[in-house]
Design a protein around this nucleic acid. Structure first.
Lengths: 199, 199
DNA sequence: GAGATTTTCGACTGATGGGTCTAATTCACA
DNA sequence: TGTGAATTAGACCCATCAGTCGAAAATCTC
């Protein structure tokens, strides 16, 4: 009973620490950020941080774990969607863009700090990324086989082009701009899939 | 006479240092790279490095300067091209992709170490980027005004989408793959401009 | 409100890294 | 082969930083 309460409070505080870490890592970079920087942002001393976290590296690994988890879920959702390959692609791209725009700071860290990960996590990262990409490739292959559309390039190149455009949004999306992440997502999907609609 | 020879030799050696720095920065990140790492890669002691370079920061600034210079040149070339807006766009994208693929390591540093730049360089970076983007936007506006094509989104969004796809190539292009940077460039241009060819 | 538990932190440690100093070594040229 | 400049580097300095320790506050429980 009591343990529960304490555990929950700690959990919540831990999340605050992670959020602060994301903010600072994103702004200065993982390596350039000291534990004191994170602590300062929370108005606490560096030593206190270690009550919620065991190491700086653990923070980074956990952040990656969070994004990776989301990736796995997204990949599953994609694979099980019952719709035209074209529709599925559109939904996927819009989703991906929206997610990226909603978590710009986290994804900046995710995309730019790969080299800081311990080897274990690095291979997990690669394998999840591969799985995600594979799902996408299969989707494209399905659409092509069904005669829904025709590519002018390798599926691989098409997929990389699309993902590049979508991922890059963490660098330029403005949350105070006129478009919501979802609106931007569907507009970008339209741009990126235009090549499929006419040969 | 003699000074010339010496100056040239030093210049050449300096370039080797910069190249080594790019390689290591790209692999481990700027902050995680020590001067000894760079020196080691060249088979020399850390102290020797300082004969060719005055500080670690200077190396980074110079690398940015190099890319920035290329950007300015590219922007000028774009602006002065006498051709259809559509053709110009295609050429530009292909160019951009090819350049990025040919200098993957340098561009990884360029895109991922912005936060490490001193304020002076950071504003220069922003202004050059802005200029480049502006040129692109004008090109799109010209094509639209001339009735060459019609956008389904803001020019800004279209441009960001295109640049995202092009820039992202530093993350996945494989120099040992079947496609040359130029071939990939023109294929990607086709994908990205398809949206302009039919409403 | 005593006693246990949780949370906080000041002070410390060991390691790393940017940059310097001084001196040895190599090189170009006469 | 001698001389002065160019090149190299070992040892050193100082700042920063991840992580620890012990103890003081703050909080909770009954």
């Amino acid at each position: 009973m009591v343990d529960q309460r304490v555990a929950l409070r700690q959990e919540a505080r831990r999340r605050e620490v992670m959020a602060a870490a994301v903010a600072v890592f994103s702004e200065r970079g993982y390596r350039a950020t000291s534990m004191s920087d994170i602590a300062e942002r929370l108005g606490m001393g560096k030593a206190s941080l270690y009550h919620y976290v065991t190491s700086k590296e653990e923070i980074l690994v956990d952040l990656y774990e969070e994004v990776l988890r989301e990736n796995v879920i997204a990949a599953r959702r994609i694979a099980s969607a019952e719709q035209t390959a074209l529709d599925a692609l559109a939904e996927l791209i819009a989703d991906r863009v929206a997610y990226t725009c909603r978590n710009r700071e986290l994804l900046r860290v995710f995309f730019e700090e790969e080299a800081e990960l311990p080897a274990r996590q690095q291979s997990r990262l690669i394998s999840v990324r591969h799985e995600y990409e594979q799902t996408l490739l299969e989707m494209v292959a399905r659409g092509e086989a069904a005669g829904e559309f025709q590519l002018t390039t390798t599926p691989q190149i098409f997929v990389n082009t699309v993902l590049g455009a979508a991922n890059w949004t963490y660098k330029w999306f403005q949350p105070r701009g006129p478009l919501s992440p979802e609106e931007l997502g569907s507009q970008m999907a339209a741009i990126l899939l235009a090549t499929l609609r006419n040969p």
